[in-house]
Nucleic acid binder design. Structure first.
Lengths: 233, 233
DNA sequence: TTAGCTGAGTGACTACAATCACATAGTAGC
DNA sequence: GCTACTATGTGATTGTAGTCACTCAGCTAA
């Protein structure tokens, strides 16, 4: 399918580029659609594209030697993934799969590399982005160190709450919340354990489910206390 | 203490820089020595230096909310740490502590930033380095997903084995191996558990301790099998 | 409507790693 | 040498999360 420069400029990281550059990139890029559970990027393969997510939700996942799934991060619309090879020409370290049906734009890595040479702004953005990834991985790692399981779940939930709700301890809504299974693989837990924690949170009126695509966080303050360990579940 | 350009050029990442640049950097840098357990970098602080390790061994560590220590990575001589702020001016995400007495060179981040503008080679190196860090964090994360504890320990041990010993399944030696405690915090285990796994490995003649600073891996093939799960302990 | 699928809730049981509480061995400093 | 400290080894006990085996709810596609 045809990619227009306008489509590309919908992505915050590409927006600063000059129109001519966007036009060139657009010509070389392609739209790819994925069904739920589709494999967007394959681990160990030198993917020659950076994947920009237009619609849907992706997840970076890895597998342990014994086949267990490990959740790494989520990709939200406007964001991108598969950019690691931009820096070291190495293979994609993890799988990226579609959690929902997704629309993406694949931009060839080599073209993007040329663009960064002329546009330091993009290079800088990519660097910041990679740094953010390291910070996220580090935070997630220290989350896994928590010996208390419900605290781990609450911390993860807390990270999904919007920034301003976190700041002002307001009640808020999480759109398209991850399934229990998805949370479980992020936190090294079994699905059942996550389910049991959610049960407690719900009976305590801290969170409330609303259909499959909404999760209300009614009592942000309590969730925060559980997340930072000042209160036990 | 005075830093000479020669000292700086001992670091692989700085070696490619022109002598004049090295001389300038050397003037602005300083040697800092740390005792065992000394804090090299503090989490949450905007450290204005990149730390190059000359002698000794450092470890990046974080702490969970409840105060538990979490091991993230090791820094070996010739390598550096604290470079994340180069990309996004953000604070240092984790602590770095000295595992042994250590000699380091602190290079001001701002000077290094200026140098990268004139020397794309350094910029590229930094990017590769950050990418390597992401890969390492990802690998470590999937290690934590292993449900079998001895496999986890063996995997970690396997990562400490030198590359060519890994390739050819030769017996090899790990210099200054991490203590059981250091391994434990990297793998989310208790010290005792690590100790018990080592006991089994030793009675099976797979590894052998030689004083405090050497660990012989006598049976690399067995270690590999244990690491990849084709054999159980 | 029905079938089929995925996600979620729940009880019973169990394995296993953490914890505690020591003992012992190295090493470093004086 | 002696002392102090850190690293390591080991048993007993216990808590707790994983696993298994279900049921149930909600969605969607024939």
């Amino acid at each position: 399918m045809q990619v227009t420069p306008e489509l590309l400029s919908a992505f915050p990281s590409l927006k600063p580029l000059p129109p001519a550059t966007l036009a060139r990139l657009a010509q070389e890029s392609e739209v790819r659609k994925f069904a739920r559970r589709g494999v967007v990027m394959t681990a160990g393969v030198r993917e020659e594209f950076v994947c920009f997510l237009f619609e849907g939700r992706l997840q970076g996942v890895d597998f342990t030697i014994d086949g267990r799934e490990v959740g790494l991060y989520f990709v939200e619309p406007g964001d991108f993934c598969g950019e690691l090879g931009m820096f070291d020409h190495g293979p994609q370290p993890e799988f990226v799969i579609a959690l929902t049906a997704a629309v993406t734009v694949f931009v060839p890595m080599e073209s993007l590399r040329l663009v960064t040479m002329e546009n330091p702004v993009l290079l800088k953005l990519l660097g910041q982005r990679l740094a953010a990834r390291v910070r996220q991985l580090t935070r997630q790692r220290s989350l896994l160190g928590l010996p208390n399981i419900s605290q781990r779940v609450c911390c993860q939930l807390w990270l999904l709450v919007s920034d301003d709700a976190r700041q002002h301890l307001q009640s808020s809504v999480i759109n398209n919340p991850p399934t229990h299974m998805e949370i479980a693989i992020m936190l090294n837990l079994s699905r059942e354990t996550v389910s049991r924690v959610f049960q407690i949170l719900q009976t305590r009126n801290i969170v409330r489910r609303d259909g499959t695509s909404l999760l209300h966080v009614s009592d942000s303050a309590a969730l925060k206390r559980l997340a930072d360990g000042s209160e036990e579940l």
